[in-house]
Design a binder for these strands. Structure first.
Lengths: 238, 238
DNA sequence: AGGGATACTGTACAAAAAAGCAGCCCTGTA
DNA sequence: TACAGGGCTGCTTTTTTGTACAGTATCCCT
């Protein structure tokens, strides 16, 4: 058991907390499992038995390390006094939550952690197709599709769309240059993409993009990309 | 402390498990609270301190009683070895869920267990005011308020409403006589209540109710009541 | 080479917690 | 009136747990 790789710089598994060793992640995962299955945290002994430690102090050391990293909190003197902290709890708690995406840091994937404003407790499966993130609508350009200013729209992440679907398009803002999410109806005719608002007021004009000019699939800065397709919305207040 | 009423036949509080005494329900609620706030169950001592028992055996006795009633499971020998069983666990798991209410059994409160079709994972706090239940909209009568057929509306339970608010009204269906939930804009002028659809098509007529005729506050079957006010909606699919 | 972290073994002790026994006071019921 | 059950006090005993201290070994970085 001793020759286990313990290189702190080894790549972490997906879903594992950052900055932890493999062993520490295993311990953390065991705590989660214990909470799920028995409803209360493990003792030092439970951990030692599970991992084959001959001394429960090995478990204690690991718990201290996890506490130092801010993954758990140890309540001194309490039997099973282990509390999962926010970050460590994420994998568990985000099961029925959706990230709210606002501005997009230039060049980053839409759902990158840096772009997440907050998490909201909505089951992704309530949307069709399943939503991967939410975006707050600004403006009235989709009014006639019954999508209003302030609505939270559920977006199913995918890179392309069928003609006529409502998409969340990522476009650089004409003034700031920052990437922004816009909801529009998508049409493609040959090399041209048309992003069509659903508001017949004259102020709302379709956006036309010529893919030939360094567009889709090009290595240059793409003038636009599809973050996903509209999958539903949630509206708050009367 | 001893002269506390302990009549096992006393009426149970709303949300409390059936067949339990008041004291037992308090203990159960404390266990839930402990799980929510600290993340692990209480010890016998925790319970004794909370309720002012001089002997932790009082707590032990209560736990045994709860176990006998199938509300909890005691894992022998384990510190904090208390597990909430399914029924008892509901209050906890529904923390971020909302019941979907369809048909209303005649005369029953809207959110009675019998009227709940299913639970959906949406944080009630996402609506304003906070939603207490959801209802699926049938028909297009509120189309011009941007509430469409098939939308799930969040309803904040309250018995009255201001003029002009959108309410979930409970009305007997003209044919079946079953109570049904309808979304309409509410107006009251003296003794008359007007439930106004938001659809200018001629097929949609306002409903007028004369409260003088055995209506609101009367002992006879009320012709209508307000289940709550509209607090937002969730729409699925493009 | 040395300091520091991770990852353990082993021992010891005190506090925390479970669990049993005996008994008291009520109240509703047979 | 006897009896059962809920609701408690008090006390004892035995586990279960947390936690500190002393070491060993490996690996990384300076």
């Amino acid at each position: 058991m001793s020759p286990t790789a313990t290189d702190p710089s080894s790549p972490e598994r997906a879903g594992a907390a950052a900055g932890l060793t493999e062993r520490q992640n295993e311990i953390l995962e065991f705590i989660r499992q214990s909470l799920r299955e028995s409803g209360y945290p493990p003792t030092r002994d439970d951990i030692a038995i599970r991992f084959g430690f001959r001394s429960k102090n090995a478990a204690q050391d690991h718990l201290k390390a996890l506490a130092r990293h801010g993954c758990i909190e140890i309540i001194p003197g309490d039997a099973r006094g282990i509390r999962l902290l926010r970050d460590a709890d994420e994998a568990l708690s985000h099961q029925f939550e959706l990230p709210l995406i606002g501005r997009i840091a230039a060049g980053s994937p839409v759902t990158a952690a840096a772009n997440i404003d907050t998490w909201l407790r909505i089951d992704p499966e309530l949307f069709h197709p399943r939503a991967d993130f939410l975006h707050r609508v600004a403006g009235h350009s989709m009014k006639e599709a019954n999508i209003l200013d302030g609505d939270l729209v559920g977006i199913h992440a995918q890179a392309d769309a069928d003609n006529g679907q409502i998409v969340a398009a990522v476009l650089p803002h004409p003034k700031t240059g920052d990437d922004e999410i816009t909801l529009k109806r998508y049409f493609r005719r040959g090399r041209k993409v048309i992003l069509q608002p659903e508001n017949s007021a004259p102020a709302y004009r379709p956006i036309e993009i010529d893919l030939a000019a360094g567009g889709e699939g090009s290595q240059e800065q793409a003038p636009f990309r599809i973050a996903g397709i509209y999958a539903g919305l949630i509206r708050s207040g009367g």
